[in-house]
Design a protein around this nucleic acid. Structure first.
Length: 460
RNA sequence: UCCCGCGUAGCUCAGCUGGUAGAGCAGACGGCUGUUAACCGUCGGGUCGCAGGUUCGAGUCCUGCCGCGGGAGCCA
């Protein structure tokens, strides 16, 4: 019979016999709480697992309950002739996504998904699910995004978000191992950023505040304190972009290094991106398989990455028929043409000053250009990094702020950094969702963030 | 903001040159001892996005609006 209350109380008390049982009963066959991923190590043992009904197949005298517990998937088998009639009735009345606790002996079986299953001897319903809307079949994007809070449970979504979590951890590990100090930059800011027009504005006790679109300027301030710093958090762009590569709220990791020039910067980026890809290959093999990712393309991501200057790129593009003119920024068409020349990420460096942000350092060898780079991911995934050496000359920064028509008064403290011990420094920003969508092979960034914020979408 | 495409059952879709609404899945009920998105049978389920127009007659043709998707620009 279902154990109701005593069963539920034991959730969250892993591997301990319940209070009140005599030690004589805590013998070899007493069920222990277990996580599904550990079951292969417990053949022949009686275990209790808790989770959600992922799928349900009920026959006349046998029922299969596919249980998902967050660590894995296991099939519970209920044989009508071997359990009390009440347990059978409960099993066949279960619905997709009902939460349950089930107990039984773990046994290997070739026919079971994953190679082992649980012969169910006890079953408790924890929470019933009524008409779960997401079926194991095709759905439209709008339907799924409206139910994102439920869609998270689906296998490909779980896989993609696990890859994201692994990449996030790899980011922190990479910088921690290299003695970078994590500096948390503000999300609420005054009128400061890369350019106006794409800022989210909010009321701040009667004055305007803006959601940060980069932490870079604050990182530059922290650089003289710690030499090597990085920030990693959400950033906001009020761009009305409706493409597979845009979110209005996305996560960006931005390192900043004192006394590093543009070449040092690209070397760091190369090492960093290789580290993230390698980590996903090492730790997310199952997830990448679930996503159907061709890992051979990821294995090719090794140093050195090809480097091509903006000027060379324009020349090669024009040779192959493009009408791009020197001085114009590379558009999506040009970028994908350039990345198609290579099997791994490619740096395009030293763009025309007019196409880039005010803080980038003028190239002393060609003042029409600035010392900067984009990193384009292969396979059509586009730009994942933008980086540059920063302008450390006070007069030149001021001139660029005025030329770009930015609110000069907002940049007062930023200019101080050029007044009190200015220094060469470089950094970059890597877009997390774009990187994870590339690594996991998903076409759209909206699936690689738990709750995407898109144009016209603020819920769930 | 601009360009292209799509709105039909809870979901995914079909519906021809205009003639009055269909399938699969999901749900309910019944059957089945090994399923892997199980299978078989029965049943319920519709303001064809909204408004107007053409026509004897509009899911179908025309106009406008709304919503969604893809792309451009901009960016990570």
């Amino acid at each position: 019979m279902p154990r109701s209350k005593s069963a539920r109380r034991r959730v969250g008390m892993p591997r301990l016999p319940p209070q009140g049982w005599s030690t004589a009963l805590a013998g070899a066959n007493f069920p222990t709480m277990a996580e599904v991923r550990d079951l292969p190590r417990h053949p022949g043992e009686s275990v209790t697992v808790s989770g959600w009904i992922d799928a349900l197949r009920v026959h006349g005298r046998v029922a299969f309950l596919a249980l998902r517990d967050g660590t894995g998937l296991v099939q519970g088998v209920v044989v009508r002739s071997e359990v009390p009639e009440g347990l059978w009735a409960l099993a066949r009345s279960l619905t997709q996504e009902s939460s349950v606790e089930l107990t039984g002996v773990v046994r290997p079986d070739e026919r079971a998904p994953g190679g082992h299953e649980i012969a169910v001897s006890e079953l408790a319903l924890v929470g019933r699910s009524e008409e779960y809307p997401i079926q194991p079949k095709e759905h439209g994007v709008e339907f799924l995004l409206d139910r994102r809070h439920l869609w998270l449970r689906s296998s490909r979504q779980r896989a993609g978000l696990r890859v994201r979590a692994e990449v996030e951890q790899a980011i922190h590990d990479f910088f921690y191992e290299r003695d970078f100090v994590r500096v948390d930059t503000p999300i609420l800011t005054g009128a400061i950023g890369e350019s106006a027009g794409t800022l989210f504005e909010t009321d701040y006790f009667g004055q305007s505040a803006y959601l940060a679109q980069t932490g870079q300027l604050y990182l530059e301030a922290a650089c003289p304190a710690f030499r090597k710093v990085y920030c990693f958090g959400p950033t906001f762009r009020a761009e009305k972009s409706k493409t597979r590569r845009h979110l209005t709220e996305f996560w960006m990791v931005e390192p900043e290094v004192a006394f590093a020039d543009s070449d040092d910067n690209m070397e760091l980026q190369e090492e960093f991106v290789c580290h993230l890809v390698r980590r996903a290959l090492e730790r997310c093999g199952d997830e990448l398989a679930t996503l159907g990712r061709d890992t051979a393309a990821l294995e090719a991501v090794r140093p050195p990455f090809p480097r091509i200057s903006y000027t060379e790129a324009v020349e090669r593009l024009r040779e192959s028929g493009s009408e791009i003119e020197w001085g114009r920024d590379l558009g999506a068409t040009e970028e994908s043409a350039v990345s198609s020349w290579f099997d791994r990420p490619v740096f395009v460096y030293n763009y025309p000053a007019g196409a880039k942000a005010f803080y980038m350092k003028e190239n002393p060898e060609d003042p029409r250009t600035v010392l900067c780079n984009d990193l384009l991911a292969p396979e059509g995934y586009g730009e994942i990094i933008g980086g540059s050496q920063r302008e450390d000359d006070l007069e030149r920064v001021v001139a660029r702020i005025r030329a770009d028509d930015l609110p000069e008064e907002a940049y007062g403290w930023y200019l101080d950094l050029r007044r009190f011990g200015t220094f060469p420094h470089s950094g970059f920003g890597l877009g997390l969702e774009r990187t994870v969508s590339w690594i996991s092979g998903r076409p759209h960034v909206r699936e690689l963030v738990p709750f995407p914020r898109l144009l016209n979408r603020l819920t769930p």
